[in-house]
Design a protein around this nucleic acid. Structure first.
Length: 424
RNA sequence: GUGCCUGUAGCUCAAUGGCAGAGCGCCGCACUGUGGCUGCGGUGGUUGUGGGUUCAAGUCCCAUCAGGCACCCCA
């Protein structure tokens, strides 16, 4: 065997059976997005490095972006996320866009990381954003759409939880502990890890970044309070609005959720499976300054992104996948012998006029082999056109599910096939 | 970028340092105008690559490449 050329690390091949799953996912995303009146859009997959340098966070840009120099000497990035492109496009056309914008998108993204379970270098992402509204209702709505999506593909609140927090609220809490403004990022990172480390290690880490023992204990104490959202106007409203929108049972306050991207300014949320088997399914929140950072007026936005990798893993584990054995083809027309090829193709074109999906076996091989192909391909009906049939202007129609077959007059074929396929 | 694990047939995996195997798949025949089921037969390999130790290496050692998992970060 000759050596096959390897695919690029971290990329996935989508065979037809994979595309069925992929399209199934995409179809639910499309339907849910549209049902809330969101419009589909997309940006370029190539952007300048400057677009991300401003706000995405150092780690994402310096360590995880695919960057290359083009022939003109410019540094080009394969987009690692969509929100900066969104902000750029909104800033650019601010005056002609009819606010508020409800936009969604589904496309490919790239991050140069070590691939592992639930993470690839090339992945798809669903983005959904509501731009130009300051209301917490906007946050509650986009988060509710995420919940509605999980429901539409077969999950219930006991499978998945969407954890909610508010960055300003957390800033106030850590500020009250005596943490300075310029240390917020460090402390957010610390908060992010409280569940990932043993408590001794966490205490040590907290101490290493410069917190005093008193502060550490108080912080740890704060992170265990699951009811303190009542002290936050925005969080209280958020939960009230999800109640109104019928999605309240999907959401929980979690003071440990702060999100990694630097541009979030208010409500933040992330979805996880309840058993915490996987990394976050989806993450999002409010970004008040992003559009103005791209050179536009201050416009507030809120939205989320969901990767395709983890959700596919979870859907598979829960057995929610659609049947991947179904073929697009309704009817396979066999070829009997050299002289009769034209009959097969004529019948095929005729049937396509009646909107049947028809394929003709391309080679002159034994019927046995053609039948076997149809069986494996899960094609419901096979037509046999041999000398006997043609002499009488008939066709043999074989139903593969039960093996039954009948001779049908060519003229009656469309009607007979229609009823047969409907009963399948 | 750091650590750990794994590379054997198309796929899933066996093989005390001693003849490279099984199941599934694929192809053929029984059934030359009929799939699935069954039976029989056949196809299958530079054991990731390169070196070393040994009478002898899939097995032990070194290097390298690839994959997986965890860290990091995040969808």
């Amino acid at each position: 065997m000759t050596k096959t050329i390897r695919s690029v690390k971290g990329t996935r091949d989508f065979y037809p059976c994979n595309m069925i799953v992929h399209n199934w996912l995409y179809e639910h995303i499309r339907r849910v997005s549209n049902s809330y009146g969101f419009q589909q859009w997309d940006g370029p997959v190539l952007e300048t490095i400057e677009l991300y340098a401003a706000k995405s966070g150092d780690e994402l840009v310096k360590e995880q972006a695919f960057v290359f120099e083009d022939r003109g000497g410019s540094f080009i990035t394969l987009r690692p996320e969509l929100t900066p492109s969104l902000a750029r496009m909104v800033a650019k056309n601010r005056n002609s866009l009819n606010m508020p914008l409800r936009w969604w998108s589904f496309g490919r993204f790239w991050r140069y990381e070590r691939p592992q379970k639930g993470r690839a270098r090339e992945f798809f992402q669903w983005n959904l954003d509501l731009i130009g509204s300051n209301s917490i209702r906007a946050d509650a709505e986009v988060a509710s759409i995420a919940a509605q999506f999980f429901y539409s593909i077969g999950f219930v609140p006991k499978d998945i939880v969407i954890k909610v927090n508010n960055r300003q609220f957390m800033e106030k809490i850590i500020s009250d502990l005596g943490v300075l403004d310029n240390q917020f990022d460090i402390v957010f990172r610390l908060i992010d890890r409280v569940d990932k480390m043993s408590s001794e290690k966490w205490m040590q880490y907290a101490s290493d970044v410069g917190l005093k023992d008193v502060q550490i204990n108080k912080l740890h104490n704060e992170l265990c309070k699951v009811d303190q959202w009542r002290d936050s106007e925005e969080l209280s409203q958020f939960f009230e609005f999800t109640e109104m929108m019928g999605t309240r049972q999907w959401f929980e306050f979690d003071p440990k959720v702060v999100r990694g991207l630097d541009y979030y300014t208010g409500i933040v949320f992330e979805a996880r499976d309840r058993k915490l088997h996987h990394r976050a399914l989806l993450g999002g929140g409010r970004y008040d300054n992003l559009v103005s950072d791209m050179g536009g007026d201050a416009i507030s936005g809120t939205g989320f992104a969901m990767g395709d990798v983890v959700i596919k893993l979870l859907v598979e584990e829960f057995g929610l996948l659609p049947d991947i054995n179904t073929s697009n083809t309704d009817i396979l027309i066999t070829i009997f012998e050299e002289d009769l090829i034209s009959y097969s193709y004529e019948v095929a074109s005729e049937l396509r006029k009646y909107n049947f999906a028809v394929e003709v076996y391309p080679d002159i091989v034994k019927l046995k082999k053609q039948l076997k192909y149809a069986d494996r391909q899960n094609i419901a009906i096979v037509l046999v056109l041999g000398p006997d049939e043609i002499a009488n202007s008939m066709v043999t129609v074989k139903k593969l599910s039960d093996g039954s077959q009948t001779n049908i007059l060519l003229a009656d074929l469309p009607e007979v096939l229609r009823t047969m396929l409907e009963s399948e």
